[in-house]
Amino acid sequence: MKHLVKRCVAAVCAAACTVALAACGSDDEAGKIRIGIKFDQPGLGFKKSGTYVGFDVDVARYIARDLGYSDDQIVWKEAPSKQREAMLQNGDVDMILATYSITAERKNAVDFAGPYFVAGQDLMVRKGDTSIRGPEDLNGKRLCSVTGSTSAKTVKDRFANEVQLMEQPGYAECATALFSGIVDAVTTDDIILAGLAAASRGKLEVVGKPFTEEYYGVGIKKGSTDLARKIDKAINQMVADGSWERAIKDNTKGTGYTPNAKVNPPKATEGVGHDRVATGKED
C-alpha cells in the first residue's frame, strides 16, 4: 500500500511539473529555477571548477534575478543540442539558454522568448591554413559539427554534395578532430568558434565570413506565454541598463570577436507574439 501511495504522489508531482515553473523535481530543486546551458562552450556556457561562466550564463542569471530568484536558487543543467526540446517537454528544466536558435521548426515543439543575441554560422580552421577562407572553399573538405544542431543541418542542406560531415556530441570533440587533422574545419556560430579558438591558445582561428544569421532565444515549454513576456522584459532591460554590452565584452575579451552591430543587440519580441521567423539555426 505504501508503495502505491508513493507512486501516486510521484505521478501527481510529475503532472504538476508540466504546468508550474520549477514546481517539482528533487528536494534540492524545490523553490528553485532550473536552467539548461551548455557546459562545454568557452565564452558562452562553460562549467569550470564547479562554477558556470559565459554570456549565456550571464543572460540567464539576469533573467532569473528579474523573475525573483537569487543566484543560489538557480540549478544549472547541461543541455546538449539534441536533447533540448525533450528537456523542455519533459519538464526537466524551466528554460534553456544554450546557443538555441529560434527556428520555425523548433517552434512546433517549444516556445521561445528573446532573441537576446544574433550570431552567424562561420568556420574554424587550424592556424595558418589558408585553403579555407569562406564557404566557397568547402568543396571536398571534411567538416565537423554537433549532432542536433542547426549548424549541422545547414551543412546538410547547403553543402551536402560538396563536403563530408562528421557529427560529434560536443564542440570539444570537434576541436580535437580539427587538431588531429581528421577534419579540415569546424562549423558553428561565430561567437562559439571565437571561444573555442581562444581556448586553443593560438592553434585554431576563425575564418570570419559568417554566412547565416542565428537568433538566439530562451527556450521554454510550449504554451508559456506569460513567462515569455517576462523574459522578454528582462532581456530588453538588460540591454537598456548596459549589462548586455558588459556581458558581451567580458566573455569575448581577447578573442578579437565583435558582434554584428547591424543586428545586435536585438529587440526581444517573441513573448509578445511577434511573427518574425528566424532564418538560421544554432550551434
Rank of each mutant, 00 (worst) to 15 (best):
R201K: 14
K222F: 13
M238P: 03
Q237T: 13
V239W: 03
L193E: 04
R246E: 12
Y171Q: 08
C174K: 01
K221N: 04
R158D: 09
K156G: 02
F159C: 07
V183R: 01
L204P: 01
V207D: 06
L196P: 09
W244T: 04
A240W: 06
G256V: 05
S243I: 06
N161M: 15
Y257L: 04
E167Q: 13
Y171N: 13
A194R: 09
A185I: 09
I220W: 15
V183L: 09
P210F: 05
R201E: 14
S224P: 02
V163I: 10
S243V: 09
A199W: 06
D190R: 10
I231M: 04
M166N: 10
Q164W: 05
F159G: 01
T225W: 08
K230M: 08
A177C: 12
T255E: 07
I192C: 12
I231Y: 10
E162N: 15
D232K: 14
A194L: 03
V239F: 04
E167A: 11
D189S: 13
N161V: 08
V206M: 02
D189L: 14
R158I: 00
I182C: 04
G223T: 02
G217C: 13
F179A: 11
P210I: 05
R246G: 04
V163S: 08
M166F: 15
G254S: 10
L165I: 10
G256C: 11
N236R: 05
R158P: 04
L204D: 06
Y171D: 10
S224I: 00
M238D: 07
M238Y: 09
T252P: 00
A172D: 06
Y215Q: 15
P169I: 09
A185N: 08
V183A: 00
L165V: 12
A234Y: 10
D241Y: 08
A247T: 01
M238C: 06
E167F: 00
N161Q: 15
K233W: 08
T176P: 02
W244S: 14
L165C: 13
K209P: 04
L196F: 13
D250K: 12
R158G: 05
T176F: 07
L193Q: 05
V183T: 10
L196T: 02
A199T: 03
M166K: 14
G195P: 02
R246P: 02
A240L: 12
A160K: 14
I231A: 04
G195V: 01
G181K: 06
P210Q: 15
V186P: 01
N251V: 11
S200Q: 00
I235C: 03
G202H: 08
G242W: 03
A240I: 11
V183F: 04
D226S: 14
T252C: 04
A247F: 01
L193W: 03
A234L: 07
G254R: 06
G223R: 06
T187L: 12
V183I: 05
A198P: 02
Y216L: 12
K156R: 13
A175F: 03
I192W: 00
A228M: 08
K209G: 06
V183S: 04
I231D: 05
I248S: 06
G170C: 15
T252R: 02
A234N: 05
S180R: 15
Q237W: 05
D184M: 15
C174T: 08
